[in-house]
Amino acid sequence: MAAAAAAGAGPEMVRGQVFDVGPRYTNLSYIGEGAYGMVCSAYDNVNKVRVAIKKISPFEHQTYCQRTLREIKILLRFRHENIIGINDIIRAPTIEQMKDVYIVQDLMETDLYKLLKTQHLSNDHICYFLYQILRGLKYIHSANVLHRDLKPSNLLLNTTCDLKICDFGLARVADPDHDHTGFLTEYVATRWYRAPEIMLNSKGYTKSIDIWSVGCILAEMLSNRPIFPGKHYLDQLNHILGILGSPSQEDLNCIINLKARNYLLSLPHKNKVPWNRLFPNADSKALDLLDKMLTFNPHKRIEVEQALAHPYLEQYYDPSDEPIAEAPFKFDMELDDLPKEKLKELIFEETARFQPGYRS
């Protein structure tokens, strides 16, 4: 834990890192770190609560700039109880001085990944967590956004079992017609939660990839272990087919990539493993919904509104309290091709509203 900075004593240090967030945020305490930044909790002297502050230093890398800009653009436009918001952003007053960006968010005690390492969940908890994931996802999908990296560590939890989806750095506007060349190379989302079509096709992607990830998360809540822990690309596919069985001819016809289709045709026939054999203690309604989410063919996979209306979630289902976005989200430009200098300018502009004396 960093010592509390005395008023006016300059930035606090946390594990050798400068955290320049005073005077409003003090009493910093280390939480963890990701690929390009550290997260601390801090005391907000204005709202009198502890908050989470993520320090991001992305400006050396085009990919990190892209992810940072995506996350900020999306989260500043989203407003939903099951999606983490941005409360404040701290950065230098000029673009030349801006080396880091500090993002202030609600402090959540833990995440689903940490929880599943230590606790076996009751059916009631599984049901409530799944409902909140789908409630947040309904809003995301209504904005025409794909999260693309749903996994237990991106689901934040607090002691009252509130759940918030975080990390929109890989999110995209849904565009089933656009052929994202190089899709697989830039697709760094965790393999275990990846839909089979991501490994088999490169053309376009749809909201059904997020539903697949939610199915993987439900299976993990039922058993405290990942359902498809593939060691590499082909191993991942083999794990999936080992449980779902061989795809039907109709399902194979959806695979545009001939090499991928021929690979699947070359494999020995596998039978589907019954879900109640894998999860003998699970609620039968939970397994019915799991089956509809972990469907090989993305066109037959359940959609988020149908999933919310499934009998497993009937005690929570309330369409009048499951809000959607006001308007579909649009990125003005494809960020993939922009140089990091341009992305830095866009991050600077996007964060201006939090600067003292800002006038829109």
Rank of each mutant, 00 (worst) to 15 (best):
R172T: 06
S142F: 05
D124N: 15
T63R: 12
H269Y: 09
F228Q: 02
H61L: 15
L241K: 06
E71A: 00
L200G: 06
T160V: 11
Y64W: 11
L234T: 11
C40L: 05
G22Y: 13
F183C: 10
V46P: 02
A92Y: 00
A143C: 12
Q17T: 07
Q17Y: 08
N257P: 07
P280R: 11
L289H: 02
H310E: 03
D106T: 02
R50K: 13
C166N: 02
I90L: 02
N87H: 08
H141Y: 06
E60G: 07
S29K: 04
G22A: 10
K48T: 12
R194S: 15
L278S: 04
F331Y: 15
S213E: 09
A7K: 02
G204F: 08
T190Q: 10
P311C: 04
E350L: 02
Y205V: 13
M38L: 15
T110R: 07
L290K: 04
E186A: 10
I133Q: 02
E81L: 09
V104Q: 11
T206P: 14
S142Y: 02
K48F: 13
E322L: 04
L222G: 13
I211M: 12
R261G: 09
G136L: 05
K285M: 07
M98V: 00
L130N: 08
I53E: 05
L28C: 10
Y113W: 10
L294N: 06
F228V: 04
G85N: 03
A7R: 13
P23K: 00
G16C: 06
E326K: 14
V49A: 04
R191Y: 07
G245H: 07
D288T: 01
H141T: 05
D321C: 06
Q105C: 10
N262S: 08
Q66D: 07
P23T: 13
R277V: 06
F129S: 11
M38N: 09
A92D: 11
Y193G: 12
A309Y: 03
F279T: 00
Y312D: 07
R91F: 03
P23I: 00
H232A: 06
Q355D: 09
R148L: 15
N201P: 07
L200A: 11
T181A: 12
R353T: 06
L258P: 13
F279R: 08
P268T: 14
L222K: 03
L130A: 12
L76H: 01
F329M: 09
A6R: 13
K231A: 03
F19V: 15
Q66G: 05
D88M: 01
K164C: 10
Y317I: 10
C216L: 09
R225E: 04
D106V: 11
E220S: 08
P311G: 04
Y128C: 11
N82V: 10
T185E: 13
S360E: 14
N47R: 14
C216M: 09
M293G: 03
N297K: 12
A189P: 07
A143W: 07
E326V: 14
L335C: 02
V273E: 15
L278E: 08
R191E: 08
